[in-house]
Structure formats: C-alpha cells, structure tokens
Write a protein that binds this DNA or RNA. Structure first.
Lengths: 224, 224
DNA sequence: CTCGTAAACGGAGGCAGCCTCCGGTTGTAT
DNA sequence: ATACAACCGGAGGCTGCCTCCGTTTACGAG
C-alpha cells in the first residue's frame, strides 16, 4: 500500500502570523502528567513505526498511547519531530561508539560508521526518507552523531586516506541514499554493504588522485 | 475498534474471482474518444507533476484534463503507472543515446549514463522515490533503458575497467538513491555529480583490487 | 441511415488521514 | 483551600484516494 504522503501545505489565511512556529516543546521541566504522556507517546510511536513504517498514522499513535490526538501534536508538532525523538536514544549510543580499530586506517573507521549509519536509517521502513530532516532537527543525539561523523571524516582526510573534497553532507547523503536504495529493493540484503564499500573505495581512489596536479577545477567547491 | 487497514476486499459473494486484476489498459487499439482522453491526461499529468512534484493530487490531474476521476483511474490504475507513462518518451530517447566517446573507457560511458539517469530521476520532484517501481513497470521505454544500462555495465566489466561483482541493480539503486538524497538537500546542486563520480571511482577501484590475490574476503560475495 | 452493443465516461460518495481549536481538567505553588 | 497556568482530548473541517454504477457514445452490421 505505497500511498505517498504529502507535504504539510500551509494553505492560506494568515490569521496570526506565527513568528515562532512553536516554543520548543520542552526539555525536562514538564508537569508530571505531561512527562508521563510524553513517554507513552514515544513508546506508542516506536511500536507504530516498527509496525507500519515511518508513515504510520498519527491518529493510530495517539490511540495506542491512549491519548488525545491534540496531546500528540502538542508534544510533537510534526511527524519528523516525533521520528527524531523516537530514534534519539539510538543516536546517542551510536555517537558514543568507538569506531577505530587497533588495525586499519581512518578510512576503514569511516566506512564502518557509514555502514552503521545506513543500517540505522533503516530502523523503520521509510525512515531514511526523512533522515535528512531528522538529522537537522537539532536534538542532542543528532548533534552528537554529526559531530562524530565529522570527526571521523576529518581525521581520515588529515591522514590522507580520503579525498579532501568530500564534505560531511556527502557522507550523510550517501548513507541515506544507500538506505533508501536498499529498502526499495529488499531482495538483496547484502547490497547495502556492497554499496557502502564501493563508496568508500571511491573516496579512497580520489584521495590518491587528488594529490596529482591534474585536478584544479575542484578546488573552489568549498562552502557550507 | 482497531480495524486499521481495509483491504480492497471484494465485499462478499465471490461471483467472479478476478485472477487478472485488470487487463493491461491498452496499446493503440483504443476508441477515438478514449485515445483523446488518454492524451489529455498525459498532458495534464505532466503539468501537474511538474508543478507539485510526483505527489500531485490525482483529482487535480483529472480536473486539469477536464475528465472524470473515473476516467483517469481506468487509464492509469495507479499513480506509478501514470508516472511511468509520463516519462516514457524521455526514457526512449534516453535509451537510444550514444554513451560512448571516441576517447575514454567504457567505465566513463557508464559514468555518463549513471549521471544522466540520476538527473532523469529528478525530472519531477519526488520521482526518484518511485523510480524503482516505475522502471519495473515493463513499458518499452523501461526495457530499453535497462537494456542500454546493462549493456554498458557488461561491456565495462568485460573490458576490465569495472568491478565484476556489481550488478545492474546496484547501478539503478545508486542512481535513484543519489537523486533522492540530493533532492532532499538541494542546497548543493553539484553534489549529485560529485557522488556519482565517487561511486564510479569505487567501481573502478574494485576492478583493480579484484584481480589481486590479497582480497579473499570479497570472494564469497557472489550471488544472484 | 438506423440500431444494438460494448466500450468508455464521469462524478457522487465512502473512507482514511491530517491537524486546529477551544472548552474542560488537573497538577502545583502559595 | 484556592487559583491559575499548564495540560488534556476529541469533535470537526479539510484534502486526497479510489470504487461503483447509471449514463453516454463510438462504431460496425444490416
């Protein structure tokens, strides 16, 4: 039932131009009942997403949590924010893992990270499609994971084992791309690994090339 | 009452068990009015997809074509079939293009093909997400494009400039994935090209490695 | 030209999901 | 005990999907 979902289209009628779309839901200073409901919602969401993929019905999530739909939207104004909160814990342990190995280059570590990230993006069917938005949602877990990845990339580049022109955005792109691609054709579960390895090999190959004087066109591509 | 999903269940009394869900709409033996409507639908769809992306409302398409919604669904039972028909022509010219160059290896040709395919998958915003389904829809254009790609890959592999373990599925996966990922973060329009290039470099690198005796771990990754 | 028939049309209607809004409820500080 | 801000909950309005079936129309035979 691959019903494609639509963007949240703000129609018109600017009754009250909300300049702050919403005060950030909250940290930990919630009233007791609110915190309780938040927990239930997260648990319910986790269940629903696991069962129906990232497009599970919001109403269903609220129902599972035995909570009004209004409550859900107050805690998590968008589907993405709910997704982000759901994977937050996973991201945190993810960021804290030690990716280096006694033997092996930094490029290898980056490869392992990339592979794990792609796997992580497949936690729920359809998660990958939102991973970009999720990672940009600015939760501690997202920051931590990004920081870790960036560190790995930088160090591999410093070591010279990875192309200096790649930026972390490319890596994230690639991870989500691979996750996306493989979950579209789940026939071959090895494909993800194969693709990751090819990508990392590509990074390596360019690392060698980039020290030759031939490539000068690519210098100006530095921004972000 | 958690009746969540309703299948399209024939209500009751299975008078005629439809084994073929629907006879394939038709080739060119349509009644005059039918053919006319088909054309209008395609034009309308093209417009709507261009404007709203691949998730444009079906009702809107019908309305633009000045045709009942029922007519739309008779001609194109699913959104994907409509998408496929919409890009059909493009795929045909795509398949017929000459990808080789006087100078340059077959791997280069494959790279150009891949890049173009990724670009093609971005014809409409959101097209890439369905490209897998679309390519599997079996229209002449899809067959032609697949055949062309497969030929390029095979010949690059025969020439030894590309890893023999990659299959065409990998290539399609990567093209759609790159298109998908990059259109999620359209900040850097150069990213798609960079990623494609890295991927092709990866294919090349493995081509070299695969003949050395050092890699034994990669041997068993032979299937399909 | 006239019919008869199958092919094609079209849109009402039922359903699901999204999200807002606001009257009612409840935790908590004093 | 009281007050009030924070929070709850779900009805309701809206959009989009897709089926079903009565009506219209093309077109081949006579």
């Amino acid at each position: 039932m691959p019903t494609i979902r639509k963007a949240p289209t703000k129609s018109s009628g600017p009754s009250t131009l909300r300049e702050s779309p919403a005060p950030p839901p909250s940290p930990q200073t919630l009233r007791a009942d609110a915190r309780r409901n938040r927990e239930r919602l997260l648990a319910a969401a986790s269940e629903a997403f696991a069962e129906h993929g990232a497009t599970a019905s919001m109403d269903d999530v609220a129902k599972r949590a035995k909570v009004g739909i209004g409550t859900l939207y107050r805690h998590f104004p968008t589907r993405e924010s709910l997704l982000a909160a759901t994977v937050e814990d996973g991201l945190l342990v993810f960021a804290d893992r030690d990716w280096s190995r006694p033997s092996g280059s930094s490029a290898d570590a980056l490869g392992r990270f990339l592979e794990a990230l792609a796997a992580h993006a497949s936690t729920y069917r359809g998660l990958a499609a939102s991973l970009g938005v999720v990672l940009a949602s600015g939760t501690p877990g997202c920051h931590a994971a990004s920081a870790t990845g960036e560190r790995l990339l930088k160090s591999a580049q410093a070591e010279g084992s990875v192309d200096r022109h790649a930026d972390f955005g490319d890596v994230v792109c690639m991870a989500t791309a691979i996750a996306l691609a493989t979950q579209q054709t789940p026939s071959d579960p090895e494909r993800a690994k194969r693709l990751v390895r090819m990508f990392v090999d590509g990074l390596r190959a360019r690392a060698k090339v980039s020290s030759s004087p031939a490539s000068k066109k690519q210098r100006e591509r530095r921004r972000h």
